[in-house]
Amino acid sequence: PAGAGTRLGHPADADPAVRRGLLAGAGLLASEQLGVAEWCLEATVRHTRERRQFNRPVGSFQALKHRMARLWLELVSARAAARNAADALATGAPDLAVAVAVAQAYVSGTAVRAAEECVQLHAGIAMTWEHPAHLYLKRAKSAQLALGSPGAHRAQLAELIPLPAP
């Protein structure tokens, strides 16, 4: 017969199941975004140690050191947020939605900034097919929007944590 099949669940259960699936996906995506950010920073540090200008490694210039140090600090915070979301997913923590919203709101922006810095500090080589930096930027940007923008996750966080308006 047409439309024959096995019902896997009640239709009323579909919405909560899809929400749980998207929540799990967003929490796991934060770990992938962290990996993108870590690769970008490591590649940038390695490149700035090897690339020379004025007979010095470009990584020895104070302005570049400061940019990479700022990025490293962001990455440490992103790691904490991503790990918290992964732990909340693994343990079924009651604040799972909060942990995932925080992770996506923060880690996705860090991944994009790390990839942008990677492309900029690698200079022209980063936009060639021979170097993967541009691919990491594309992945960071698409992942940032894949399961909700950072703004959407911040709005969700505002609903989850009832803070009074100023």
Results as ranks from 00 to 15, higher is better:
147 L>T: 03
95 D>K: 09
90 A>S: 05
93 A>F: 04
130 E>W: 13
101 A>T: 02
93 A>N: 08
83 R>L: 12
108 S>E: 07
127 M>F: 12
112 V>D: 05
132 P>E: 02
113 R>T: 14
122 H>A: 13
80 A>Q: 15
118 C>H: 07
128 T>H: 07
78 A>D: 08
126 A>N: 08
123 A>R: 09
125 I>A: 15
103 A>C: 05
131 H>W: 06
124 G>S: 05
88 A>H: 01
135 L>K: 14
81 A>C: 07
129 W>Q: 07
105 A>D: 07
129 W>F: 09
91 T>Q: 02
148 G>P: 03
116 E>N: 14
95 D>M: 04
141 K>Y: 11
78 A>G: 10
111 A>T: 13
121 L>M: 13
99 A>T: 00
126 A>Y: 11
143 A>G: 01
113 R>K: 15
142 S>L: 14
116 E>F: 10
141 K>V: 12
142 S>K: 11
142 S>N: 11
129 W>E: 08
130 E>Q: 14
83 R>A: 10
81 A>R: 01
121 L>R: 12
77 S>L: 04
131 H>R: 08
96 L>W: 01
78 A>H: 05
132 P>K: 01
80 A>G: 14
101 A>S: 13
90 A>T: 00
126 A>G: 12
144 Q>L: 14
122 H>K: 11
107 V>N: 05
117 E>C: 07
143 A>Y: 04
85 A>F: 09
148 G>M: 02
81 A>G: 05
87 D>M: 03
139 R>A: 11
122 H>E: 09
114 A>E: 02
85 A>Q: 07
109 G>C: 10
83 R>G: 11
130 E>N: 13
78 A>N: 06
82 A>F: 12
148 G>C: 05
112 V>R: 04
138 K>W: 15
144 Q>H: 15
127 M>A: 09
136 Y>M: 05
90 A>Q: 02
140 A>F: 03
104 Q>S: 04
145 L>Y: 08
99 A>H: 12
98 V>N: 13
134 H>T: 10
84 N>R: 15
127 M>T: 09
141 K>W: 12
106 Y>Q: 09
114 A>T: 12
99 A>D: 05
94 P>L: 03
94 P>T: 02
144 Q>Y: 13
86 A>P: 01
92 G>W: 08
83 R>C: 10
138 K>Q: 15
125 I>S: 13
99 A>E: 07
96 L>K: 01
105 A>I: 03
131 H>I: 00
126 A>H: 10
